[in-house]
């Protein structure tokens, strides 16, 4: 008797992840400084008034949009940590400072924040920051139904996942809350200040033509 075939077994989704990382090796020092700050960024996540003066990457408006959208992506819903709990906002700032990430990818993140504001004004005739929570959520849902918006939201979800799942040394996953929630045991050895990504590149990729 012949063997059974399984043509009906479905092919899994492909994970077209447009934000695969790439590297250049400059300005790691600045990234390290931001990373250090990001680990103590309670003021970043609790007081938007100070964002404008403290944040060299985003305006106060952009910061407000970012914080809001991150909380829509990973809300405080009683099921595990929220984006605020994980310091996802601080992690995104670390990313914007990271010399190993391409500038165009960083620009893309910021453009999306501005675009959110433009869309808010186009649809609701108000700045994003002035919208009601329901309106913000409706706007974000609209993003995911547009090609550009879906790609941008995909990048933001990936950044959120990184802040949930990567080592706290990069500023996210505060107090290992992400790992604890998901019962994840990290692999050893974990990165130290001597082996974290910027130091690795500094020590092992010494030249750039």
């Amino acid at each position: 008797m012949g063997k059974k075939n399984f043509p009906e077994v479905k092919i899994p989704d492909t994970f077209a992840d447009i934000d695969k990382w790439s590297t250049n090796r400059r300005s790691f020092l600045r990234a390290a400084i931001v990373a250090g700050a990001a680990s103590q960024l309670t003021w970043f996540t609790s007081c938007s008034a100070k964002l404008e003066e403290a944040n060299e990457y985003l305006t106060a408006e952009q910061s407000t949009v970012l914080k809001s959208i991150l909380m829509i992506i990973f809300p405080n819903d009683g099921n595990g940590p929220s984006a605020d709990d994980l310091n996802t906002f601080g992690f995104v700032l670390w990313t914007l400072a990271d010399g190993l990430k391409k500038q165009e990818e960083k620009d893309y993140i910021i453009e999306g924040l501005d675009w959110a504001n433009e869309k808010a004004q186009e649809i609701y005739f108000e700045k994003y920051s002035s919208l009601e929570d329901e309106q913000k959520e409706a706007l974000v849902k609209q993003f995911t139904e547009l090609s550009w918006g879906k790609n941008w939201m995909s990048v933001m979800v990936t950044l959120t996942l990184e802040s949930l799942l990567l080592d706290p040394i990069y500023g996210g996953n505060t107090d290992e809350k992400g790992w604890q929630w998901l019962e994840h045991v990290p692999g050893l050895p974990r990165p130290t200040e001597e082996t974290r990504v910027e130091a690795f590149f500094e020590n092992n990729k010494p030249f750039d033509l």
Binding site: W21, S22, N24, E162, L166, D167, P191, T195, V197
Partner: peptide, 27 residues
């Protein structure tokens, strides 16, 4: 480069998110 054993970690940021062991596509 010559990566020594002690420089290897289980840090996904280094290994897979920034692909530290591969040349980057621009270079």
């Amino acid at each position: 480069p010559w990566i020594k054993t002690e420089a290897f970690t289980k840090d996904e940021m280094t290994v897979t998110r920034r692909s530290a062991y591969k040349p980057n596509a621009i270079d």
